[in-house]
């Protein structure tokens, strides 16, 4: 950024040749856009949630149906984030540190959930595990319930959130190269030792970053979960599904109370994400996205 040989003008003047008015208009447009699309909806969510006071708000959150939705959402997030953590690290490790045939294909596969509509992802699981589906008859014969129960919701969520951890790690690990690992191994470290003592400390901020985004999406997913949930009240409704149901029942305070929890999750995610990004920039190589 800084211009060491700046003589007669400051770098600032050099960069901005536009008239002040235009600069002002551009900034104002950006601020206005943010106000309308981010700040205003957030205010509406919280204002509606508290429109009948604190006690109504907490009453809405402690309804059995609300508690069950919160519980289910936490459970699903715990399952899908921890599994995706493992899958994501393994996939990123393989892609970044090794050369093999079909690598580009694997990278494309990892990105697939981003490009597929969530509703389609849900329907795929219906076609696989539904009573009329591929595995359906076998599952029914053994009385195993996947669809319209926790396993189905977890599967759909894992699918949708799969790319986050791997995507956060691949560019980071690629830039770090394999020298440190090679050094460790030539000094006699085993594979696992190398991973835990060398690779993991190097990627920890990137990993946290991926986990954070993965968690946010896992808790907020609507489309795919809606298809496989069956909408059984107090049993298979996650928080986003319950928000819609309550809204459709004219229970605005309850609906926005649950929505406010999801909004708070988004805000916390945002703060932690900013901190992590700073860490990543300071630490080593800047992240790609």
């Amino acid at each position: 950024m800084s211009e060491p040989q700046a003589l007669t003008f400051t770098p600032r003047d050099n960069i901005h040749t536009e008239p002040r008015v235009i600069r002002f208009v551009i900034v104002a447009l950006a601020v206005l856009f943010l106000l309308i699309f981010v700040v205003l909806p957030l205010i509406v969510v919280f204002a509606s949630a508290f429109s009948r006071g604190l006690s109504a708000y907490f009453a809405a959150l402690t309804e059995p149906e609300a508690l069950s939705a919160i519980r289910l959402t936490l459970l699903i997030a715990a399952i899908s984030v921890s599994l995706n953590l493992v899958f994501g690290v393994i996939a990123a490790w393989a892609i970044a540190k090794f050369e093999f045939a079909g690598k580009t294909f694997l990278v494309t596969l990892i990105d697939l959930p981003f490009s597929v509509s969530p509703v389609i992802s849900g329907l795929v699981f219906v076609l696989l595990f539904g009573a009329q589906g591929f595995f359906g008859p076998w599952l029914q014969a053994h009385d195993i319930r996947v669809l319209f129960a926790v396993p189905g919701i977890a599967l759909a969520t894992i699918f949708v959130t799969f790319p986050f951890v791997a995507r956060a790690l691949i560019p980071l690990m690629q830039e770090q190269g394999t020298q440190e690992e090679e050094a460790a191994i030539s000094l006699g470290a085993s594979g696992l030792q190398t991973f835990f003592r060398v690779t993991l400390p190097n990627i920890k901020w990137g990993l946290l970053y991926g986990v954070l985004l993965c968690n946010a999406r896992a808790m907020g997913e609507f489309g795919a979960v809606s298809v496989v949930s069956g909408h059984i009240r107090g049993e298979t409704n996650t928080m986003p599904l319950l928000v819609e149901i309550l809204y459709n029942e004219y229970q605005f305070v309850s609906s926005f109370a649950i929505a406010s929890l999801l909004a708070m999750l988004a805000l916390i995610t945002l703060v932690v994400k900013t901190i992590l990004e700073r860490r990543l920039d300071e630490g080593q190589v800047p992240s790609d996205d």
């Binding site: 219906v126 595990f129 539904g130 009573a131 009329q132 589906g133 359906g136 029914q140 319930r145 669809l147 319209f148 069956g230 059984i232």
Partner: peptide, 8 residues
């Protein structure tokens, strides 16, 4: 459809 697909 959901019942046909296995909603109990």
């Amino acid at each position: 459809r959901a019942v046909i697909d296995g909603l109990q």
